[in-house]
């Protein structure tokens, strides 16, 4: 059994580490600090932590204000509220003027589990990706989360980081170096390529193992930065394999699948299969049940690879 680590806890620990050397870092939350793990920062630096209560619109506006005054605010809540409830505040107060606000949202996707559809955003990547000036990052494990949060705080401009509720399988070794805008080839393969993000990266690697048993070699690429997208890597791997699969715990509309389709369509059209949530809301259930119900397992990804290879005419 693969070791798993909480990306939220990695976020909380990283905030504390950054807070030691970055006096400009302030953290805001909307009454969910124990869930988002900003409570770690709150305990260590109480003067620089602001619980804004159950009022996400005001939290995003206040975060904009902190940035206007030269601070580096990290604003956290569940992803559905950060991007949906406060969309116009993120849009007009933060993204439009390009303010230096970091939105680190947890509990994205159906793996929220039992709370059901009201708490499971399947559209947040889409909402954030279409905002000019916004950088969008979806880390694949705890180690990458820590590096992504650090990179976001070190860069100038608005960033959206999407984290999940459950612990993610550990993928990266200590020597991994995340770079904003750079996708990482995790497994070589010439028959097809799987572009994945977040929780689906470990599942894509599992799918590649299943496929290898059948003699099919699928490459796996971690596309943790959805925007700016690593177009070069996407075009290069599409040319190499001629068969592309995307995998994300998000709607097939507007997320990674759409982003990859846009690049392929304009540059190198090849058959594409998108593994993602097919135009539906989530529901209550255990995370694993919901991932199975929504078609988000290694088995589903492997099936998509077989289909896309069939369509590519090079089976």
């Amino acid at each position: 059994m693969q070791k798993k680590s909480s990306t939220r806890e990695a976020y909380g620990r990283t905030l504390v580490e950054l807070g030691k050397n970055c006096p400009e870092l302030v953290v805001l939350d909307a009454d969910l600090s124990k869930s988002t793990k900003t409570s770690e920062f709150a305990g260590r630096f109480p003067d620089r932590f602001f619980d804004m209560g159950i009022a996400e619109q005001n939290m995003m506006g206040a975060a904009a204000g902190f940035a206007l005054a030269g601070k580096i605010p990290c604003a956290s809540t569940f992803a559905v509220f950060a991007t949906g409830r406060a969309y116009d505040q993120v849009r007009t107060a933060i993204a439009y003027p390009g303010l230096n606000v970091k939105i680190v949202a947890t509990h994205a996707g159906v793996s929220v589990g039992e709370d059901g559809a009201s708490h499971q955003t399947v559209e947040d990547i889409s909402l954030m990706r279409t905002l000019p000036n916004m950088t969008v990052i979806v880390p694949a494990d705890a180690l990458e989360t820590a590096q992504a949060v650090t990179a976001a705080v070190e860069m100038q401009g608005p960033v959206y980081i999407r984290l999940g509720r459950p612990a993610f399988p550990d993928i990266f070794a200590e020597d991994y170096r995340f770079q904003i805008g750079r996708a990482a080839l995790l497994r070589q393969g010439g028959d097809a390529v799987i572009f994945a993000l977040g929780l689906m990266v470990s599942r894509a690697l599992d799918a590649a193992l299943l496929l290898a048993e059948e003699g099919t070699e699928a490459a796996v690429v971690n596309v943790s930065t959805v925007k700016p997208l690593d177009r070069e890597m996407i075009i290069k791997m599409a040319r190499k394999t001629g068969a592309v699969v995307t995998a994300e715990e998000h709607s097939i509309y507007g997320g990674l699948g759409s982003a990859v389709a846009e690049v392929l369509g304009e540059n190198h059209p090849v058959p594409l299969e998108r593994v993602g949530i097919r135009d539906r809301f989530g529901e209550s259930g255990s995370p694993e049940q919901l991932l199975e119900t929504c078609g988000l397992t290694a088995k589903h990804i492997a099936g998509a690879v077989r289909r896309v290879i069939e369509r590519s005419g090079n089976p």
Binding site: R48, N58, A63, A64, F66, L68, G70, K71, T92
Partner: peptide, 17 residues
């Protein structure tokens, strides 16, 4: 409806500093 929130963030930053 957004300006007061931004003003509050600037005001709180001013207190902090």
């Amino acid at each position: 409806g957004q300006g007061l929130s931004m003003g509050l963030g600037i005001a709180l930053a001013g207190k902090l500093d």
